[in-house]
Amino acid sequence: MIEARPALDPELAALVAAQQHELRSAAFTPDDDATYLVAIVDGRAVACAAWRPTLDPGIAELQRVYVRPAFRGRGIARQLIVWIEEETLAAGRSIIRLEAGPCSPAARALFQSSGYDQVDGAFVKRVVALVQ
């Protein structure tokens, strides 16, 4: 199950803290413009992702894709990405950009297999509707 969560949700914060620890990145500052998602397995928050509109019309930024290590390899991240693609397209944003930053080989493979091209240090995809 994937559900939207507010930026200050404690389970979301725990997931982001785990991601930051793994990547050794800066502290999390919630973004009020972002839509946050949490994947739930057996009542437990196990993954998260977010997207936010950019200042450029038609473009969205994919953020915070993270799956707890014990739940990787089950397609959860891909489900989150698909959900975000559908939401951004419905919001009139057909281009999604993800800053590459510190990215594992598995994450790079996920984004590339999901149709994202690496352009100038970011992954970019033009999203199209499956049914018109």
Rank of each mutant, 00 (worst) to 15 (best):
C103G: 07
T88R: 07
L98I: 14
L80S: 05
A109E: 15
A100S: 15
P69Q: 04
G92H: 08
W83I: 05
I76F: 08
R68S: 02
E99Y: 12
A70H: 11
A90E: 11
E85K: 03
E61Y: 02
R97I: 14
Y66K: 05
T88C: 13
L80I: 06
F111Y: 15
G115M: 05
F71V: 00
Q112E: 15
L62N: 01
Q63D: 10
A107C: 04
P105A: 12
A107R: 05
R72Q: 13
A91V: 04
R64Q: 07
T88M: 05
Q79L: 04
L98G: 07
L89H: 11
Q63F: 00
A60L: 11
A109G: 10
Q63Y: 01
R78K: 10
S113Y: 08
P102A: 13
R64D: 01
Q112Y: 04
E87L: 13
S114C: 14
V82A: 13
A91S: 13
A77C: 06
A109Y: 14
F71G: 00
I76K: 01
E87T: 11
I95M: 13
R97H: 06
I95W: 12
R74W: 02
I76W: 06
P69K: 07
A109H: 15
A70S: 12
R74G: 00
R68V: 01
F71N: 03
Y116M: 09
A90L: 12
S104M: 08
E61N: 01
I84K: 01
R64N: 07
Q79I: 00
A100G: 04
A60M: 09
A90D: 11
A100E: 15
A90M: 04
R108N: 09
Y116H: 06
G92M: 09
A106L: 14
R72I: 03
V82Q: 10
F111K: 09
I76L: 08
R97V: 14
R93Q: 12
A77N: 00
L89G: 09
W83V: 13
S113R: 15
P105C: 09
V82N: 02
R78V: 03
V67M: 08
R93C: 08
S114N: 05
I84C: 13
G92F: 06
E87H: 15
L62K: 00
P69W: 06
S114P: 02
A107L: 13
Y66P: 02
S113D: 14
R108G: 04
A109F: 13
S104T: 15
A109L: 14
A107F: 08
Y66L: 03
E86Q: 13
L62P: 02
P102E: 14
V67K: 02
A90C: 07
A70M: 10
E87W: 10
E99M: 12
A91D: 15
P69F: 06
Y116L: 07
Q112A: 14
E85H: 07
L98S: 10
